[in-house]
Each structure stands twice: as C-alpha cells, then as structure tokens.
Design a protein around this nucleic acid. Structure first.
Length: 718
DNA sequence: TGTGTCACG
DNA sequence: ACGTACGTGACACAA
C-alpha cells in the first residue's frame, strides 16, 4: 500500500485492477464455506462476529439465502451483514411473540397495590436481589440521568422477577407516590446490578433513591476481574459463560424508546435482565469461592466495590464549573485562532481546512515541497522536525494547539454542565485493562495540566469550601523500585533525592554526579539540564519497554547513542533489568502477570501469536502492567482507607486523575486534618521505599495554587 | 466506522 | 511487507 502511494496514480490503478481480477477469480473458485472461513477470520468487532455467525447459521438452516443479484460477486462481509439485517427483521415479530408467550410464571408486572406490597414483602425477606432500570430520552437522553426519564425498573428476588412500569406511554401503571413505598426496602436490601453506576445515578437523580449504599456487587466489575480482555455486556456474558443466549433490545425494538414498549413485552425483557444478572452473580461467585480465585474475590469486595460506590457518590455530587469564564476564555482563543488562520492563509495563498490531514498533507508536501519524512503524516512529531524548513510550521502547530483547546475544552465543557450548574463526569473505576480508572462525559482526566486556564474553570462546591489536590509523588517509579527491589532506586527514594536527576547522573556515565545534575539543572542549555531532560524520558520510557529506535527519535539522537543510554540505565539499575526479564519470562511461561494486589493481566492469546510484533507487544505490556496496575491499585486502596477520614473532616472526593485525587474540603479544614488525609494515602500500602504525597491547596479554582504555610497562617489571623 | 491527532497519567 | 513506548477518551474528517 505504501509502495503504491509513492509510485503514483498510474500504478495504483493497475494494482486496483489486479485486485479486482483476483476478487473475480475468487468468486468463481471460492466455495461459500471458504468465503465464511475468510470472513470470520477477519478482524471483526465482537458484535459483527456474532451477527456473521448468525447469518451463517441462518443460511445453513435455510432461513435466508443470498440475493440473486449478488450471487455473481464474491461473498463479502458487507453482503453478509446486509443479510443479517434481513434475517433480523423477519425474525423480529416472531421473537417478540415468543418472548411474551414464554414469560415465566414467576414474572410479575407490578400494576396494582396488591402486587406492589407483595413485591415489598418479597424484597424485604430476600437475602440478595438484583436491580435494573430502563430509561428513555431524546438525543442520547436515555443515557443521561440529568436529561432523560426512567421508564420503569425491574427487581429479581429469591422467588420472582418484577417489572414496575413508571412512565410507559400505554398501559395501567401505579402512581409514583405508590411506587416509592418500595424505597425503604430497596435501600436496606443487598443488591446486585450489572453496571451499577448507571442505575444508581438514575434512581438517585430522579427519585432521591439511594441504592449506592445498598450496592453489594456489580457483575460488570466482577466480569472484568475474571477476564479483562472480553466485552462485558450482560447479554454476551450470559451467552459465553452460562451458554444462555438472550435478546438484544436494539434488535427487538429498532428505533423504539423503552417507554413505548408494550408492558407485556417490557415485563419479560426487563425482568429477564435482572434474573440474568442474579444468575450471572451466582455463577461468578461459584468460581470466586474456589481457593484459586481467593485473591480476585478479595480484590473485588475489599477494593473494587467500595471504590465503585465512592465514585457513584462523587459523580452524583459533581464539580462546579465556571461557564461564564469558559465563554470568555473561548472568545479569547477564538481571536487567537483567527489571527493564526489569517497568517497561515496569507502564506499558503488560499484558505484550506487545516484540520483536514488530507488537505494539509497536499499543501505541505506537494505544494510547498517540504520533506515528507513519514509518509505524509502531519503529526506534531513530524512538524517539529520540519520546524526549520518553513516559517508556517510553528504557526500550524500553534493553530492546532488553540483549536484543540477550544473544541475539546472551552466549547465542549460548558455543554456538559447539567441543570444544577455542575459537571457530573462518569468515572469508570475499572475502565482500563490495567485496572486504572477511565472517565467520560467529560473526561476530566485529560484537562490540560500545563496550561492552567482550563483547570481554573473548575470550582469548589461553594464559597465556604476549597479544592484540595493530593497526588502521589513518583508512584510508578516507587512501585518499580519495590517490585524490582532495585537498591539504587530505593536508596534514592530513602534519601529524598530527585529521581530524574538520579537517573541523569547514571546515564551521563560518570561525567556528572547526582549533586552536579541537581546544581546545574536550572541553568538553561546546560549539559546537566540536558541529561536530566533525557533522564525523565528514559525513566518513563524504559518501563514501557521503549527500544533504542524510539528513544533515539524522542531524544533526537542517534540510535547508537540511544542504545548506550539504555545499556547504561540497565547497568546502573540491575534490579530493573532483572525485573523486566522476569516479567517477560513469567508471561511467556504462564500467559499472565499480576500486580501487588493480585490483579491479573492475561495475555495468553498474544504470547502465542506468530506475529512477532504482537508477541513483543505482549512482553512490553507484561513489563508495564505490574507497575501501572500496582500504582492504580494503591490509589484505590487509599480511596477505601480514606472513607472514614473524609467523613471526619467533612470532605469529599470529586475527581481522580490516575495518581491524584481532587477533594472538596471545608475552607476551615486544619493542617492536621489534611495531614491525616495525606498520611492515610501514604500508608495505603507498605513498600520497601517510602511513599509520599503532595498536598496542594486550590482555594476556589483547580490548579490555582497557594502556599500551604501561608494559607494556614492567614487562616489563624481570621 | 475507521483513521489521525492530541489531551492526560 | 512493514511495524518494536504503556494505558485511556474526544474530536474532526473521510469514506
């Protein structure tokens, strides 16, 4: 493909013609079985793969066949997916009728007071129940508790499964005043949910119902603990693990909101979900209760579930946002953007869409004839290298920077403010395969840290409260020192040394001592500063499994020099070398690696791959996982430990940014109070080297720093 | 829907 | 045939 691009249009046409010929030939020679083999072995999304399998089944059973108009062509994935649509439509009516006809006898549609009170009794006498709510709303409102509505909810108890309709457009329904007679028994129940934050938030926002404290287990989190590689939709877990296929809402009701679903269909569908959730829970618990999975069980119930509950509360609380300042800032950026665009347009001689890689590529490499180093890529890394070739390059970089700030932040964030004037992010406490958090709507983990303006838009809850940000200092490298038992690193941490300077001295290969680097690091352009900058990249890069090639790229040095740095690094930190080799050995031998809390990363598929790139990739992941995961787990453990301390000091967690917590505290919180919180975090885990946290006071605005001693001295004057 | 780009740790 | 820096989410563009 790359070859074709470089050669020019003529050849490309010829190769395309060749491809067509091959395809035609395949259509003649390929049997339908061979076509299936080819299509199914493609890199398909999980949903597609299932659909494809269903089409194959349907064809084998004679439910569907190829359209005559297509039969001359090679059987393609696209055609198979078109057939799926036909198949699904013809089966839809039948499926719905089946669903209603097969409604189990212990499913109850709660539409009378009598049934409601029977349900109430049943809940209060059940040891464990499952809960799920069905929602609806326009333009994505069905996923946003602050915009959409609850159509109804279902509960499965020891005896029965119930669906309580609330806002269906048709059918007899109890008034919400009656339905809330269930609230007290629900709040004191022990509840299992699949993707609990979703349901907890909806019920809290709409009815003030607190299911969060009643939440016992989230089967999505449990599934993540058992297999972080697969998708975790309830439906698919049941199909794969319990061999119980179930229906997909979108397929049964294309373009229908849940409140439009007839009650006799809603009952088996919704009540089925909670029944399955409970079944899945039982199935998972059966496995967790074996000796082999004791660590995982502890991880789920001692760490993950308390953390999950905490962040449901945090997201519900939300963080105040300064919409007015945001639009001022956006206007300022807009002016900057316009000026830059004008300058660039002047240089180009015409206005192009700078956000279009295709147009920019054409302009830079064809019209301006700049050196195309990386096959037409216009990423910052490439632009940096072209900086000296043309004065327009730095302008483009600046334009991109401002554009990014606008579209991702000053324009986007105000849209995320809900009716209460706050931003309510969705923290997913086990979103990443490594056990780290992810966050969305908005992703508060990617608010610029280097440019403070955007973080300044996030405010403390009220004028009598302040923001306090506490972050772990070099937690990943401390974890590495611990796991690798790397004495040089451990000593450096014990002495409170700057860790990048320590590495800088090491990779300077005897030219500079630690003290030299420390003394010279602030002199712009000094060799000491250069070594420390390099060391910083090396410190992070090496644990990611960075090779000499990319280190050379990154440091803008030769590959040979880069290799020497890597060699010196491992020579100076022999423990790290040992640790890396051990992780590679472990993953090749057992197919997985673990962090200090027993969290697992399973890479069985990857290490068996014949694709060397994938295999080496798995080894890099194996080297990196225990560090990234342990660091993440330490913060999670801290979140659990913090709960009583935060309550004591009337403080709340608002955000998590990997190694940092943003807290909302009373303005009059004492230095001792904050020390207690900090120490709780530092003591969350005992490593062979000390763990340290930095406390930053941000009164009013995030990242708006004040000196701690000055703050506390002023407070005393009041 | 996939790709490129870029924000964070 | 080429690719050897981990983990994310969000946007605009191009198909």
């Amino acid at each position: 493909m790359q070859l074709e691009l470089n050669i020019g249009g003529d050849i490309v046409k010829k190769t395309d013609a060749l491809k067509e010929a091959v395809k035609r030939k395949q259509a003649v020679t390929e049997t339908i079985d061979e076509a299936w083999q080819r299509i199914l072995s493609m890199k398909n999304a999980t949903a597609d793969q299932e659909r494809l399998l269903e089409v194959r089944r349907g064809m084998a059973e004679g439910l569907i066949g190829r359209n005559p108009s297509d039969s001359a062509k090679r059987f393609s994935k696209a055609e198979a997916l078109r057939l799926y649509k036909q198949l699904a439509e013809s089966q839809r009516e039948q499926k719905l009728a089946d669903l209603v006809a097969k409604t189990p006898s212990n499913y109850v549609l709660v539409d009378t007071h009598e049934k409601l009170w029977k349900m109430r009794d049943d809940i209060s006498t059940s040891e464990l129940i499952a809960f799920d709510c069905e929602t609806f709303g326009e333009n994505g409102g069905a996923l946003d508790p602050w915009r959409g509505n609850v159509a109804g909810f279902s509960v499965t108890t020891k005896n029965a499964s119930y669906y309580v309709p609330i806002k269906h457009s048709e059918g007899e329904q109890l008034h919400i005043h009656s339905i809330c007679e269930l609230w007290d028994v629900l709040e004191s129940a022990k509840i299992v949910m699949h993707n609990a934050p979703f349901d907890c938030k909806w019920m809290e926002v709409h009815y003030g119902l607190n299911l969060t404290d009643a939440l016992h287990a989230d089967t999505r989190i449990m599934a993540m603990a058992l297999d972080e590689n697969r998708d975790h939709r309830l439906k698919n877990l049941l199909t794969d693990w319990l061999k119980e296929p179930s229906d997909n809402f979108d397929e049964l009701f294309p373009n229908v909101q849940f409140n439009e679903v007839p009650l006799e269909v809603a009952l088996p569908y919704a009540a089925g979900d909670t029944e399955k959730t409970l079944k899945l829970y039982d199935w998972i618990m059966k496995h967790l209760n074996t000796e082999k999975l004791a660590d995982i069980k502890r991880l789920i119930f001692d760490i993950e579930m308390p953390v999950c509950r905490q962040f449901i509360r945090s997201d519900l609380r939300g963080i105040r946002f300064d919409t007015e300042k945001a639009s001022e800032l956006d206007a300022k950026f807009e002016v900057e953007e316009k000026e830059l665009l004008e300058k660039i347009t002047g240089i180009f001689g015409e206005e192009i869409n700078l956000n279009s890689p295709a147009q920019l590529k054409q302009k830079l490499f064809v019209d301006l004839k700049l050196t195309d180093i990386a096959n037409g890529s216009t990423g910052v890394k490439i632009l940096k290298k072209l900086k000296r070739e043309h004065p327009v390059i730095p302008l483009i970089m600046e334009y991109r920077g401002v554009g990014k700030l606008r579209q991702a932040f000053t324009q986007k964030l105000p849209k995320e403010v809900k009716s209460d004037g706050k931003i309510h992010p969705w923290h997913n406490s086990w979103g990443a395969a490594t056990g780290r958090f992810t966050c969305k709507s908005p992703n508060t983990q990617q608010i610029p840290a280097k440019r403070p303006e955007v973080r300044h838009l996030f405010l403390a809850t009220s004028s009598d409260r302040i923001l306090v940000s506490i972050d772990y200092s070099q937690i990943e490298l401390r974890v590495l020192a611990h796991m690798a038992n790397e004495q040089v690193l451990i000593k450096a941490f014990e002495n409170g040394h700057d860790i990048h300077s320590t590495t800088a001295a090491l990779i300077s290969a005897g030219q500079y001592s630690y003290e030299d680097i420390e003394n010279g690091k602030d002199n712009d352009g000094s060799a000491e500063q250069k070594f420390r900058k390099q060391a910083k990249i090396v410190n992070f890069g090496i644990v990611y499994g960075m090779g000499a090639g990319s280190l050379a790229d990154n440091l803008e040095i030769s590959k040979k020099e880069a290799q020497k740095i890597i060699d010196d690094y491992f020579l100076g930190y022999p423990g790290i070398k040992r640790y890396m080799d051990e992780q590679h050995r472990l993953v090749m031998k057992q197919g997985f690696v673990t962090d200090i809390f027993g969290r697992k990363r399973r890479l069985h598929k990857e290490i068996k791959s014949k694709d060397m790139f994938r295999k080496f990739g798995a080894q890099r992941q194996a080297g990196n996982f225990p560090i990234q995961a342990s660091a993440g787990s330490i913060l999670k453990k801290a979140i659990v430990d913090l709960k009583p301390k935060l309550a004591k000091h009337d403080s709340e967690i608002l955000l998590q940014v990997h190694d940092e917590l943003v807290l909302d505290c009373p303005r009059n919180i004492t230095e001792e109070g904050l020390n207690e919180i900090r120490e709780t975090m530092e003591n969350a885990v005992k490593l062979v080297c000390p763990v340290r946290c930095d406390v930053e006071l941000n009164p009013e605005r995030w990242l708006e720093k004040v000196k701690n001693d000055e703050w506390f001295n002023e407070e005393e004057d009041d």
